[in-house]
Design a protein around this nucleic acid. Structure first.
Lengths: 147, 147
DNA sequence: TCGTGAATGTCAGGTTCCTGACATGTGGAA
DNA sequence: TTCCACATGTCAGGAACCTGACATTCACGA
């Protein structure tokens, strides 16, 4: 009984579950970040910069799964409010390595705690082994879609 | 060595993998639906109607993880091109039960085959048991986030 | 040496989705 | 009955993201 009609059976579709889980995570993250005056993409950008200082706009865009253009306007906003700094001229090529400011680190700390709480809630029904396995399965899905 | 700093470790974050997988699926689905002149949300709407005829605008919105307002403009477009019909007056309450037309079913058939191919590609590296388990784990994540 | 391709930053325009708001219809509680 | 909470459909305005395009910079090969 794999498939009766021409349709994708949403009740057992991995893709549908994926979208559902992603949507729920999106909503939950927006809910906890809004009181902090922060966006999901803004948070992603700051988090990426905390773990890999010096990332360029294009690299940040790939890491946050948005286009260079979207990340660029976001970075300009983060520069304006003093969370991020970029050199006025590129040290090599055209890439401008971005860095967190102390203010950026401070804003990230609050956001990161809130997001970690959300992630913990998401994994509440999973033990450690299951969480690891879920991550591995998702990785293989990405490989299948990209490779 | 669970966590050294205040940050969420993206390299092992389930949430990050989830966003990555969802993004890859989104890109892949858009790529196969674009030649058919169709949107992801449009496809979701038609697929939902195929499996549960008579769904209202609000119910379709919840099923496709968008707002009523977004689904409404989408439904109006699908009505204009003749894929969907809604009664001019609500049979009960304010809900207008939507139905697929033969044209809508036809357009869905092509889209559904394309999407199924994408989903198969996503599960290429997973055996049947792993796919079932992935779906179950994602379900538990949703429960954790919503409950 | 030169030119070709790839990657980057950036600007402009358009599309999609969301938030806020309002009117309408239903069902239960006072 | 009457009132109030809730759900639905719909309109208007704004925020976020994307596509298309262009100039600049580097690496590689003819």
């Amino acid at each position: 009984m794999s498939q009766v009609g021409p349709s994708v059976d949403l009740a057992v579709s991995v893709g549908y579950r994926l979208k559902q889980a992603s949507s729920a995570l999106h909503v939950a993250m927006e809910a906890v970040l809004r009181p902090l005056g922060m966006n999901i993409t803004q948070y992603s950008c700051l988090e990426l910069l905390a773990q890999r200082p010096g990332l360029s706009n294009a690299e940040l865009a790939r890491g946050a799964f948005v286009t260079r253009q979207s990340m660029n306007v976001l970075l300009q906003a983060l520069e304006r409010d003093g969370s991020v700094v970029r050199p006025p001229v590129a040290p090599v090529g055209r890439a401008l390595p971005a860095e967190l400011t102390p203010l950026g680190r401070e804003r990230l700390a609050a956001a990161s705690a809130a997001v970690r709480a959300v992630e913990d809630r998401m994994r509440a029904g999973l033990d450690r082994a299951e969480a690891v396995q879920l991550a591995a399965l998702l990785d293989r899905c990405v490989e299948g879609l990209q490779g």
